Amino acid sequence: MQAVVVDGFGGPEQIELVQVPVPQPGAGQVRVRVRAAGLNPVDGAVRVGVFGGAGQRLGFGWDVAGEIDGLGAGVSGWALSDPVVGLHYGPVKPLGTHAQYVVLDASAIAAAPSSADPVTAAALPLSGLTAARAVDLLGLAPGASVLVTGAAGVVGGLAVQLAARAGYAVTALAGADDEALVRTLGAAAFVPRGSAPAGPVDGVVDAAVLGAAALAHVRDGGVYVGLRPGDAPAAERGVRVVVQEVAADGEHLARLVALVDAGELTLRAGETFALAEAAKAHARLAEGGARGRIVLTVS
């Protein structure tokens, strides 16, 4: 099968499409025939060596949408050809979802949304679980005021929707041209990037990774939720500082799929590239400014 890998760190020119054996599912695992796979910022970080792995061949991809192609021993509740979405956790791995086939633990998958095609569905697993875990960590009462930074991004946009659904009064911080977008996602108020909300908020989901600059908008005794493990500002003024860490969680993913199919959660897939164009996709990712998740399609 074909898979996207790097044998050395650097720019998009390091990306290779290689032939590797089709992986075999072990006990408690499934093999998924990949139809679409999201390209996330974490993949760019893997490419440049942020997570280490020097001297190893590293694969890419956390998100997958496709159908079950093989069942390992002990797997129940799933059948061949079932359409699924899943999360392949881990930055340092020999193969990821940017391949024709991927093996996942059965506990890491959920039935794919019936209302979305594979390209759109591939924008859900990593971004959706990240946003949902962040909103859950707020732990505030309904009606509390919550600021979401980077609200027009894929994760930030999902966080806006989930926070509004949880009953929070959401203020979205994003680019000046993004007000209409974030309001359609459920933001009650808007703050253009570089400005401050009208007053302190009860909590912030810092999807833009602003750190101390975002924490400064939280009231004394409020809560700051970061999205990047190991990268959070120091607590001050009694503000509770927590950081979400995503995990492969098929049950939680299934709840998000249900929201998608109920029309309560909007997914945003952006530009698509064929698997053979992975280097071009990484170059586009590095440019920044994409609206919607970049997705690799697999034929």
Rank of each mutant, 00 (worst) to 15 (best):
residue 2 Q to D: 05
residue 7 D to A: 09
residue 16 E to W: 10
residue 17 L to T: 14
residue 18 V to Q: 11
residue 20 V to M: 09
residue 23 P to Q: 08
residue 24 Q to L: 07
residue 27 A to L: 06
residue 30 V to S: 02
residue 32 V to P: 01
residue 39 L to A: 03
residue 40 N to I: 07
residue 40 N to T: 08
residue 41 P to L: 08
residue 43 D to V: 01
residue 45 A to W: 08
residue 47 R to S: 05
residue 47 R to T: 02
residue 49 G to R: 00
residue 50 V to M: 03
residue 53 G to A: 06
residue 54 A to I: 02
residue 57 R to V: 15
residue 59 G to W: 02
residue 60 F to R: 09
residue 61 G to Q: 14
residue 61 G to M: 14
residue 64 V to I: 11
residue 66 G to W: 12
residue 67 E to T: 13
residue 71 L to C: 00
residue 73 A to R: 11
residue 83 P to N: 08
residue 84 V to H: 09
residue 88 H to G: 07
residue 88 H to K: 08
residue 90 G to H: 06
residue 92 V to T: 05
residue 93 K to C: 01
residue 95 L to N: 00
residue 95 L to W: 03
residue 120 T to W: 05
residue 126 L to F: 15
residue 130 T to W: 06
residue 139 G to E: 11
residue 139 G to K: 14
residue 140 L to F: 10
residue 141 A to G: 06
residue 144 A to Q: 03
residue 147 L to M: 04
residue 148 V to K: 00
residue 150 G to T: 03
residue 151 A to N: 04
residue 155 V to P: 02
residue 160 V to M: 10
residue 161 Q to F: 05
residue 162 L to M: 14
residue 167 G to P: 14
residue 171 T to I: 15
residue 174 A to D: 02
residue 177 D to A: 12
residue 181 L to D: 12
residue 182 V to T: 15
residue 186 G to V: 11
residue 191 V to H: 13
residue 204 V to C: 15
residue 205 V to I: 15
residue 218 V to T: 09
residue 223 V to L: 00
residue 225 V to T: 05
residue 227 L to G: 01
residue 229 P to V: 04
residue 230 G to K: 04
residue 231 D to H: 04
residue 233 P to M: 06
residue 234 A to V: 13
residue 237 R to N: 08
residue 242 V to P: 09
residue 244 Q to S: 13
residue 244 Q to W: 08
residue 246 V to T: 14
residue 249 D to F: 08
residue 249 D to R: 07
residue 257 V to L: 12
residue 260 V to T: 09
residue 261 D to P: 05
residue 269 A to H: 13
residue 271 E to N: 07
residue 272 T to G: 04
residue 274 A to D: 13
residue 281 A to G: 06
residue 282 H to I: 02
residue 289 G to E: 05
residue 289 G to L: 07
residue 292 G to Y: 01
residue 294 I to K: 01
residue 296 L to Q: 00
residue 297 T to A: 01
